[in-house]
């Protein structure tokens, strides 16, 4: 059983929705990222208080035709990648 993950935006990023895709800039090196529609949905729900599992269930499985386990696996990959670039915080406890 995988532990619960909580996700929140790093406070030093710049971000804006552009035509259904989230555009994020890392302040470390001005690297620009864009997220597709599903990744953007996860990003927008990253409030530090809602577990990733619940975000995927509410915002991905309910809106897109995806299998829940596969969606959660993909979501974990995504948030770990974003965290490695410093634009997202992940924790096993809620993030204040």
């Amino acid at each position: 059983m995988l532990s619960r993950l909580y996700i929140a935006h790093a406070s030093d990023i710049a971000a804006r929705m552009l035509g259904g895709e989230m555009m994020i800039m890392s302040p470390r090196d001005s690297t620009l990222f864009t997220l597709n529609e599903t990744a953007s949905a996860i990003w927008q729900a990253a409030d530090g208080a809602t577990p990733l599992e619940e975000i995927v269930e509410r915002h991905i499985c309910a809106a897109f035709d995806v299998e829940p386990d596969a969606a959660l696996r993909d979501a974990r990959d995504l948030v770990e990648q974003l965290a490695s670039h410093g634009v997202l915080l992940i924790s096993e406890a809620p993030i204040p």
């Binding site: 552009l18 035509g19 555009m23 620009l32 990222f33 864009t34």
Partner: peptide, 16 residues
Amino acid sequence: LMQEMSARALRLGIPI
């Protein structure tokens, strides 16, 4: 990617 974003903003009429 920056140019792509700029071009997309142009297409969508967004003041990026």
